[in-house]
Design a protein around this nucleic acid. Structure first.
Lengths: 199, 199
DNA sequence: CGTACTAATTTTACAGTGTTAAATAATTTA
DNA sequence: TAAATTATTTAACACTGTAAAATTAGTACG
């Protein structure tokens, strides 16, 4: 009676089909378009069947998150193992992270909750009052550059912004890390970048 | 017939009431709990009335985003104006940004799309295979620290992660910035932090 | 004051969502 | 072949955003 196992394998297959279908839908139409009925359509079943395999929609998302983290870890590990020197390992790993984020954008969004809402800032605020406009002045001045739109100023602005937004996001998402460490990182980063302006 | 103006003022008031109600709901129950009917309940009307004031739900979110950006800009400006020295201005501005993100968390989430999905990574991956586990090794070694869980290692790891995640998020949300500049920032940041490990 | 018109508001409705319980179809077991 | 189990679907509920129609309230005019 090996049919037991055949059936078991088929069910296992359906489990991954559900995940794949979900991933496909998200790749085509984005996260907010994902619905149980669409998944069901794609695997040629009706919606309630999915609850035989996953407790609810959130469980599916959790499973995909898990897959995403495993993929990311894998990529970082591969990158690391391609190098001997520690410095090279670190660079390769973070580059792998970077590449993963864009190659597997949907996973990354799910894992770290990067939803692109309406972020056209420049069109929402009166000209001259965006954070960029406010911060670019001192940056340009410290760098001895007259034009606020200069690429070098822009680069430094994004450096500030990235690290701060990164820290913020991580802290909003993960409640864990200690306030003391965060303050430390923040201060270090800011003064570090500021120092780098005067070269 | 000044009643025309009184009525106009009342309608104006309802417009802001809708926004306030939405903000209140989100503060209490989070973004995904926000619904037109709940807003209507809070302002003691029925749902369709809201469409007399805003085209749709997205328009409400956009208006709140705008408010958020104006608030943020305001805070940064205030911080800036409290200082004379450029370095101090920059530090104060980014600290203001930081404080805004947590004091007005709901706004920040809306503005930059930071949804906290399930990000308990450590529980999703087998021990020893999280990105932290992978990256902390070389970091600790370069710093000459034996214990991977040492706070100094942790701090540096978060510094890497923050700037890279920050860059990624900004790039996912804003399609605008040039790839060249991003690569530049990324490389600079990584080598910068890596150099800082060896002190 | 009562009638006609306009504006404000609600009721109803539709298509969609996640999810559960009951009904049915298919398959396996005795 | 009949009974029992399993697989799958249909029907339903309570939501969601949104649009059209029906209703109520308020104003203007004869």
């Amino acid at each position: 009676m090996g049919s037991k196992e055949r059936i078991h394998r088929l069910k296992e297959q359906t489990r991954v089909n559900i995940l794949d279908a979900a991933h496909d839908i998200v790749k085509d139409e984005g996260w907010q378009a994902l619905s149980m009925r669409k998944i069901a359509d794609k695997i040629e079943y009706t919606a309630p069947i999915i609850y035989e395999y996953y407790a609810n929609k959130e469980a599916i998302l959790l499973e995909l998150t898990k897959k995403g983290f495993m993929l990311l870890s894998c990529r970082m590990n591969e990158a690391k193992n391609k190098h001997e020197k520690l410095e090279d390992q670190l660079e390769a790993m973070w580059l792998a992270y970077w590449n993963f984020a864009f190659a597997e954008k949907e996973y990354y969004q799910l894992m770290f909750g990067v939803e692109m809402n309406c972020c056209i800032m420049d069109e929402l605020l009166p000209p001259g009052s965006t954070p960029y406009d406010i911060a670019a002045g001192p940056i340009a001045e410290l760098m001895g550059i007259g034009d606020i739109e200069d690429d070098r100023v822009c680069t430094k602005y994004y450096t500030y912004w990235s690290i701060i937004h990164g820290l913020v996001s991580i802290n909003i998402v993960r409640q864990g890390t200690s306030d003391e460490i965060n303050r430390q990182i923040l201060k270090d980063a800011i003064t570090g970048i500021t120092r780098s302006l005067k070269n």
